[in-house]
Amino acid sequence: MRLVNSIENGIVIDHITAGKGMIVFNELKLKDVCNTIVLLMGIPSKHLNKKDILKIEGDFKLDPKVLGLIDTNIIVNYIEDNKVIKKEHVSVPDKVSDIIKCDNPRCISHTDDYAKPIFTLMKQNGELEYQCSYCEEITKIKFK
C-alpha cells in the first residue's frame, strides 16, 4: 500500500462515497489550482465499506454547498499546523446560486449576464430538484 503523508495546513474532504472522488475533484475545478492535491480512491471504510478522500494542501476557498449537492456523506476537515481545527458535515443546500445553471433553455439567465438566478430546493428524494428564481422551471442536479 502506498503511504500518503498527512497535510500540515489545508483541507481533507473525507467520507466521499466511493467513486465520487473524481466528481468532487472536477466540480471544485482542482485541476486549475496551484495547491498540492491528493485524491485517494477505494479506501477501506468502516461506515461506507469503501470511500474516496481528497486532500488539498494550503489555502483553498471551499464552498461546502457544492459538496452538499454531490454527496451528503462527506465530512470536511480543516487542518492547521497538523491539527484538525474544524469538522464540517455537508448537507443539501436549501438555496444555491452560481453553482448550477438553469435547465430551461428559454430562461433569461442563459442570455443576460445580469441575471443571477437563485435556485430553491424543491425535492430531495433520489434526484435533487431546484427551482429557478427567474423562470420557475425545475433543474435536476446531475454530475458526470
Partner: peptide, 14 residues
Amino acid sequence: RHPKEGAPKLASEY
C-alpha cells in the same frame, strides 16, 4: 414583453 422567461423579473431588479 420578452421571449425569455424571467426577463421581466430581471428588469424589475433594475
